[in-house]
Amino acid sequence: MTAMAPIPGRSTERSLAIRTSKLNLWYGTFQALFDVDLDIRQGIITSMIGPSGCGKSTFLRSVNRINERLGYVRTTGTIDVMGQNIMDPEVELVQVRKQIGMVFQRPNPLPISIRDNVLFGHRIHNAGKRDARSEEDGIVENALQTVLLWDKVKDKLDKKATALSLEEQQKLCIARLLPVKPGVLLMDEPCSALDPKGTEAVEELIWELRGEYTILIVTHNMAQARRASEECIFMLMGKVVEHDDTGQMFVTPKHKETADYIEGRYG
């Protein structure tokens, strides 16, 4: 069993993309997550907010098991992604990473051409073989169209990706996840290295992607969480305090801690 269940397209019913139960995580002896039970719905944008060190990035990095690279991380509990526990021993890590794409705080395009960046993931999951040029061209155009970058870069696909502006680099980093058809996109403060204009552009793009992809986005920017997500999770000290409809949470938070944080009294 290597492949995970295929992702249905836009889902109308409230099916779950990610469900964790009793998720605990330790960095050495320091416990970063405490019994995290979260149901994250498929096809919507869920934002995670909370002060630094509250465990939101740790949670995000558990969902594609990138945390494990640090040898001293220990996890208990289950993380179901699209119905399958990714902590199972028979789960293939490469498939997890393929189905669950990740976007980082700092855009990290590879120092190769724009075209090769978009095709990188596709090629490594294709036994290293290259498809016919026309087929690859189609993939590149498709992915770049989706991230609203095609018109800007279509004439310089063979230029180094590292020469692009940060905003374009971040869009490219999203674009290169798409050809392998992931179900979930994890974004760790994807706009914090960008200027306000870039932030707006990338937010717009993320908004466009919802529906087809389940997006989980960690942010320090309250306004961003408010305008660019449908559900919102507030974490504090490794625990989930509140998980609600974003509009609801920002207008009438149920917990005092949430209200304090949203109104900027700490964090």
């Binding site: 594609n64 990138i66 690279r69 890590l93 490469v94 498939q95 997890v96 990473r97 393929k98 794409g101 990740m102 980082f104 700092r106 990290n108 395009p109 590879l110 120092p111 990188f120 993931g121 490594i124 999951h125 290293g128 980093c173 290169r176 996840l177 392998v180």
Partner: peptide, 19 residues
């Protein structure tokens, strides 16, 4: 960051080294 980018797309260590 280059290695992380590769691993996060599901590249193996060798694919990351080689490419």
């Amino acid at each position: 960051a280059f290695r992380e980018a590769c691993w996060n797309m599901g590249a193996t260590r060798w694919q990351t080294i080689r490419r």
